[in-house]
Simulated scan of single mutants.
Amino acid sequence: MTRYYDLVLGLIPLALGGIAALLSVLGFALTTAIPIASVVAVGLIGHAMFVNGPVDSAPRSAPADDGFQPAD
């Protein structure tokens, strides 16, 4: 089953290569097409990290007492 992060990992190189190639075919210089395509790829990464970031499914409880004594 394909999850969101699997799709993002697949879309990053597809967006970078596909958009750069498309813009190049449309007449943009390669030195312009690649930065524009990279903005889209970085946008995908940013969305995956900050908008729809990975979270733990179970909430964490308070830290347990590990038995260490303070050094006095």
Rank of each mutant, 00 (worst) to 15 (best):
M1C: 06
T2M: 06
T2H: 06
R3F: 07
R3A: 03
Y5W: 10
Y5V: 06
Y5A: 03
D6P: 03
D6G: 07
L9V: 15
L9F: 08
G10K: 09
L11W: 04
L11C: 04
I12G: 00
I12Y: 01
I12D: 00
I12V: 15
P13Q: 03
P13K: 01
P13C: 02
P13R: 00
L14W: 07
A15L: 06
A15S: 13
A15V: 14
L16E: 00
L16M: 07
G17S: 01
G18K: 07
G18A: 01
G18D: 02
G18F: 04
G18I: 05
A20N: 00
A21S: 09
L22E: 05
S24Y: 10
V25H: 11
V25R: 13
L26P: 01
L26M: 14
G27Y: 05
G27N: 04
G27M: 09
G27D: 02
F28C: 05
F28S: 04
F28W: 14
A29Y: 08
A29V: 09
A29C: 04
A29E: 10
L30H: 12
T31H: 10
T31D: 08
T32G: 03
T32S: 10
T32E: 11
A33G: 04
P35Y: 05
P35W: 07
I36H: 04
I36L: 13
I36T: 10
I36F: 09
I36N: 01
A37R: 02
S38Y: 02
S38N: 03
S38V: 05
V39H: 09
V39Q: 08
V40F: 03
V40I: 11
A41C: 04
V42W: 04
V42S: 04
V42D: 00
V42E: 01
G43S: 07
L44H: 03
L44V: 07
L44F: 07
L44C: 05
I45E: 03
I45C: 08
I45K: 04
G46C: 11
G46D: 06
H47W: 12
A48I: 05
A48Q: 01
M49N: 14
F50W: 13
F50Q: 06
V51I: 15
V51A: 15
V51Q: 10
V51L: 11
V51Y: 12
N52A: 13
N52V: 14
G53M: 05
G53P: 03
P54T: 11
P54D: 08
D56M: 11
D56N: 14
S57I: 12
S57T: 14
A58Y: 12
A58G: 06
A58T: 15
A58F: 13
P59N: 09
R60E: 06
S61G: 12
S61I: 11
P63A: 10
P63Q: 03
P63E: 06
A64D: 05
D65K: 11
D65H: 11
D65R: 13
D65I: 09
D66C: 07
F68K: 12
Q69M: 14
Q69F: 13
Q69E: 15
P70E: 02
A71C: 07
D72C: 03
D72A: 08
